[in-house]
Every structure is written in C-alpha cells, then in structure tokens.
C-alpha cells in the first residue's frame, strides 16, 4: 500500500497537476486533498459510465414499451 501511495504522490510531483490556491476556513489537510485528487478522476469516470448505462437502459426500455404497447 505504501508503495502505491508513494507512486501516486510521485505522479503528482511529476507535474501532472497544475497548482492553484485552495481557499477555505477549514483545513482541507494536505493528505486528504492529495487522495481526493487521485481518486476523483476514476470516480468521475465511474459515475459517467453509470449515468450512460442508465440512459441506455432507459432508452431501450422506452423503445420496448413503444414496440409492445
């Protein structure tokens, strides 16, 4: 696990990320921000995939209802 985290951190340090200020009155905590940055892309893709799947299912179901109704 440590190796995985080190790899992901190295990825960030390699310049894949573009710096910009984070402004908030609560401390976002560096490690928490880092993890979020690393997982959000995958979770976003998963979400988009699920949304697309739901849209396809809805379309098929609509067509099916039209054909059988």
């Amino acid at each position: 696990m440590t190796i995985l985290i080190r790899f992901l951190i190295a990825l960030c340090l390699a310049g894949v990320l573009t710096p910009a200020p984070v402004l908030a009155y609560i401390d976002p905590v560096a490690g928490s921000v880092m993890l979020q940055v690393l997982i959000a892309g995958a979770l976003g893709a998963l979400f988009a995939f699920k949304q697309a799947g739901a849209a396809v299912r809805m379309t098929i179901s609509r067509i099916w209802r039209r054909l059988t109704g």
Binding site: V37, G44, L46
Partner: peptide, 24 residues
Amino acid sequence: DRRRATATSSRQVSRTGLTGLVAH
C-alpha cells in the same frame, strides 16, 4: 515543502470528478 505545496494548491478535481466523488 514541494510535496505540501502540491497537495494543498492543486487544481485537479474536475466537475465530473467532484460529482463522482459525491455519488460514491
């Protein structure tokens, strides 16, 4: 210092990523 600066000042979470995080 670089590590902390990178972590706390990164523009890295897209709106889709943010939405995906919340959905998860």
